[in-house]
């Protein structure tokens, strides 16, 4: 046995896990399956929160419902696990109620883009000062692997047993068209780029959106003959980083090539700035 496993982490001799102070360690291990990408994206979010230098006491995480929606339950910050699809409007109220707060929405593709799709486009249109991180695992994991608004055409899920007849959303294109001021996409394998992106998004004002592709080996992978490690290898072999790519080229199709990178980074007055300027009487 290696010396590395003794003495115990957190003892006087061994420093704790670098994120120990930001997780509710009494709730770990979390509910996510072996190989699930949510934990990695969640850890990247916490790392970015720490390294960004923002006041963590003024930082909140809001989640909706689903596997990714459980993220709020593991972060040792003010955290809100809301109703299905409604993380963004809840976060909107939180931010408007106290503009000093840094509000990070962490949720899944089903939550943010099917049941909550309307809220996403409107928050982006208003340029609400939120950082929205979407863990896209291509299906509804919590309920056992049903087709989502992001499931690739012809992919098998429990509700598309002969393959998905529909086309998926191109999420960065949707975010771009709705007016988001920061848009990026990474996979959980591209952890460093992802962390940098999240850090940038948190410190930037306005509506930021980061799509994170992560495997759902149990519910999506199993039905589409993809083991967790194989999915990560696809992320390595079938992706290309192309910053500022044309948003209409950003379809997720791993039979071809998937473009990652930072696609939008622009400035626009935020919802609160516009409200103060337009609606409040001059002092």
């Amino acid at each position: 046995m290696q010396a590395a496993t003794t003495p115990r982490a957190g003892s006087a001799l061994v420093p704790e896990h670098p994120l120990e102070d930001l997780i509710r360690s009494d709730r770990i291990p979390h509910i996510w399956c072996p190989g699930c990408g949510i934990g990695t994206a969640f850890a990247a979010t916490l790392t970015a929160m720490k390294s960004s230098g923002i006041d963590l006491h003024k930082t909140c995480m809001v989640s909706g419902i689903g596997c990714s929606g459980r993220a709020a339950g593991y972060v040792k910050l003010d955290s809100f696990h809301t109703t299905h699809g409604r993380a963004i409007p809840f976060a909107t109220g939180l931010k408007l109620g106290n503009p000093e707060l840094n509000v990070v929405v962490f949720s899944g593709d089903g939550d943010l883009f099917a049941i909550g799709g309307n809220h996403f486009i409107h928050a982006a249109r208003r340029n609400m000062d939120l950082t929205v991180i979407c863990l896209n695992n291509l299906n509804y994991g919590m309920t056992g692997g049903q087709v989502a608004a992001t499931t690739p055409h012809l992919a098998r899920t429990t509700t598309t047993p002969s393959g998905n007849p529909d086309a998926p959303f191109n999420l960065p294109l949707l975010a771009w068209a709705s007016g988001a001021t920061y848009v990026a996409r990474w996979t959980v394998l591209h952890t460093r780029e992802l962390t940098e992106s999240i850090q940038k998004a948190i410190t930037k004002s306005g509506f930021s959106f980061i799509e994170v592709l992560g495997p759902c080996p149990i519910n999506y992978g199993r039905r589409n003959r993809e083991k967790a490690l194989q999915t990560l290898k696809l992320y390595r072999e079938r992706t290309i980083i192309r910053n500022h790519a044309d948003p209409s080229d950003l379809d997720v199709d791993f039979t071809k090539q998937v473009i990652l990178g930072e696609f939008v980074d622009k400035e626009r007055p935020t919802c609160i700035e516009n409200y103060d300027k337009t609606c409040r009487l001059p002092e």
């Binding site: 290696q2 420093p15 770990i28 996510w32 990408g37 934990g39 990695t40």
Partner: peptide, 30 residues
């Protein structure tokens, strides 16, 4: 589960990749 073990401790260059790819907060390097 079978947790990982370090076969060649002297070869670690402290790149932290195991730490940041781990979905479980279960491994880290110092």
């Amino acid at each position: 589960y079978h947790p990982p073990e370090v076969l060649q401790p002297k070869s670690c260059v402290n790149c932290h990749y195991c730490e940041i790819i781990c979905p479980e907060f279960a491994i880290y390097s110092v």
